[in-house]
Design a protein around this nucleic acid. Structure first.
Length: 423
RNA sequence: GGAGAGAUGCCGGAGUGGCUGAACGGGCACGCUUGGAAAGCGUGUGUAGGGGCAACUCUACCGCGGGUUCGAAUCCCGCUCUCUCCGCCA
């Protein structure tokens, strides 16, 4: 959420942000300006009447009988006027807050122009895609041949985009996740187990709602939502709190199952584990003071942390600076890491590092007390460390052998207890 | 799931419908005192929004939402949450 005071003074900057992000908001901004102005016109009137009601009410107790009658008559008038105006006030406030939730965060100047992921700008590559001296198989062919990935039965039991991981695939998934978790712990991140079901304020606070309702599984009976990423619970951890300066920055790493409806993606990435309804993910989140320089530093750090995981697993990847049109509503800037996937013949998104400034913190009412004892909204950031199914794709396909077996990346051998999957 | 109790400021804890943004105690901050500290004494100590260069001032907020009333932390209704007991349970 943007600062309403700031929007009031910079409506055109918000409109420009919407244009760059391809999130049309010109009308919303205009509407906001109108409602906001109406509210600001109304407020002094209501408050003046309330003040009068208050003071003359106090006089009533010690007034003479004659005065009482006059005061009472005036109080009755005030009551009605105030009631009418309060209703307007509440309605205007609700409308204004609703509009505010729809406005996009302003992208950083270095966010490239562009309409879709095709316009993302590559800023770095690491490693070289392996040249196979045989015809490489896809993770799904490898996994089914080895009997460790079973999509057909996943579909039988749970419908499309579901799967079973058996034996070494399950263990490999565990190994990657634990390796990722351990790596982040060496960087001082606190490991956290988070709630997978969250209330609406957590979804709204992290800016998945309003707008993302169709992507989330909803347990209507209990008014709870299944998280699509632990970012939701983890960033909400300190919601409605005022943190002390000394305890910042907060660095957390969580592992969770992620649930995604993938509505509107029918026919996209239908084969294999690339796009599924459920997967596991290790995620890093940082909460710190409202300082652009520090946020940028954290952004670089969390990107680096994830790159180190891929480097340790010797998986070629590239980093892209996500363009405006591919950026979500809440982000200031986003770097995606795409890992080489032989079956796609291209890099596939495996990580997404975002910084938000105070956009989420404002919605979450997540604050801290600065050196001058003033309360301010925090800055938040997050990045994937490892998402199980997509990492599985990358490992199986990049580390496959001609006989259909898989060499376990050396760094994972201690976690797997073996250096090879297959015959 | 059944029964009961409760929800007030950083914490504990009072509060008769107007004099309560809220007694009292603790904590914390600053000052005095001291060689230094403790004790003691004094002062201060919420958030958000509006107005003023500023001192300052106005409004809202005592779990949340309604209602009664000229006026509600205080009365009424609904909801949520917490705790205790019973049941069930990985």
């Amino acid at each position: 959420m943007l600062d309403p005071k700031w929007v009031r003074e910079n409506p055109d900057v918000v409109k420009e942000a919407g244009r760059k992000k391809r999130i049309p908001c010109s009308d919303t901004v205009d509407e906001f300006m109108k409602v906001d102005q109406a509210l600001r016109d109304l407020l002094p009137r209501v408050e003046g009447l309330r003040a009068e009601q208050k003071t003359s009410g106090k006089d009533l107790g010690k007034a003479s009988p004659d005065d009482r009658v006059a005061i009472l008559a005036r109080q009755k008038e005030l009551k009605e006027e105030i009631q009418a105006l309060s209703n307007d006030e509440r309605e205007l406030k609700e409308r204004r807050d609703g509009l505010l939730l729809l406005l996009p965060n302003v992208p950083a100047p270095e966010v490239p122009e562009g309409a879709s992921d095709a316009d993302n700008v590559e800023i770095k590559t690491w490693g070289t895609p392996r040249v196979f001296e045989f015809e490489p198989k896809s993770h799904i062919d490898l996994g089914e041949a080895l009997g460790i990935i079973d999509v057909a039965r996943g579909v039988k039991v749970s419908g499309t985009r579901n799967y079973f991981l058996l034996g070494d695939a399950m263990l490999l998934s565990e190994a990657v996740l634990r390796f990722a978790l351990d790596h982040l712990m060496t960087k001082g991140f606190v490991p956290v187990e988070v709630p997978h079901l969250v209330r609406d304020p957590a979804m709204v606070g992290t800016a998945y709602f309003p707008g993302g309702e169709e992507q989330a599984y909803r347990c209507e009976k209990d008014e709870l939502n299944l998280i699509g990423t632990s970012e939701v619970s983890l960033t909400s951890l300190h919601a409605d709190e005022t943190l002390a300066l000394e305890e910042l920055p907060k660095r957390y790493v969580a592992r969770s199952v992620c649930f995604r409806r993938e509505a509107g993606t029918y026919g996209k990435d239908t084969k294999g584990l690339y796009r599924v309804h459920q997967f596991q993910k290790v995620e890093q989140v940082i909460v710190d003071v409202a300082d652009d320089e520090r946020s940028r530093q954290h952004h670089a750090d969390i990107l680096q942390n994830s790159e180190e995981v891929l480097q340790a697993l010797e998986l070629p990847y590239r980093v892209v600076n996500v363009c405006g049109g591919d950026l979500g509503q809440p982000q200031i800037q986003k770097f995606d890491i795409e890992t080489w996937m032989p079956s796609r013949g291209s890099y596939g998104e495996t990580h997404s590092a975002s910084r938000f400034h105070e956009f989420q913190a404002r919605r979450l009412n997540l604050r801290y007390r600065d050196a001058e004892k003033k309360t301010r909204f925090c800055h938040t950031l997050n990045n994937t460390v490892a998402a199980s199914t997509r990492m599985l794709i990358a490992i199986l396909e990049n580390w496959q052998n001609e006989d259909g077996s898989i060499t376990v990346p050396p760094k994972l051998v201690p976690y797997m207890g073996k250096d090879r999957i297959g015959p």
